[in-house]
Amino acid sequence: MSLFVIIISGILINNYVLSRILGICPFLGVSKQVETAFGMSMAVTFVMTLAGVITWLAQTYVLEKLGLGYMQTVTFILVIAALVQFVEMVIQKFSPTLYQSLGIYLPLITTNCAVLGVSILNIKEEFGLLETTVNSAASAIGFGLAIVLFAGIRERLELSNIPEAFKGFPIALFTASLMSLAFLGFAGLV
């Protein structure tokens, strides 16, 4: 697969949130304001790209060399947990405001299934190191795109008159459904 195809596929066609349905918790949880959504997507992009590369190296040079392929899940989640801890400390040091607004969702990147998902899919697709890096970054950008667009719509929804029963999660899910439908249009692109 050429790198260009991987990029387009990661961002638009196989968008992590809207087509693969990974990373829904932060997508629904941190999308009330564009600003926090943007901060979250930056944090996720950073973690996801690094995690993709490091887990690939761990799989290729440690697990496969030692014949420990079945330890994949345990190893990957530990690598991701350590990375998130690191990013959390960096953000806390350099941008306390961002740190406060991301609140509890920062440690929750650990349990963002998109991050572990991209790591496992990189191995499953038998990508090389360069393809892994590009695919992880593209997937993260796709996640960021979806969550920022979604936050923009939700900011407008706050001001509109919604039937009582649909307030909160139901209307958010309907919005996500329509966005997913729109992204379905990219399916024939490549």
Partner: peptide, 15 residues
Amino acid sequence: QPAGGFLVLGILLAI
């Protein structure tokens, strides 16, 4: 499809 998943869950939560 994924879009239907969001839709059905949204309706169930509203109910």
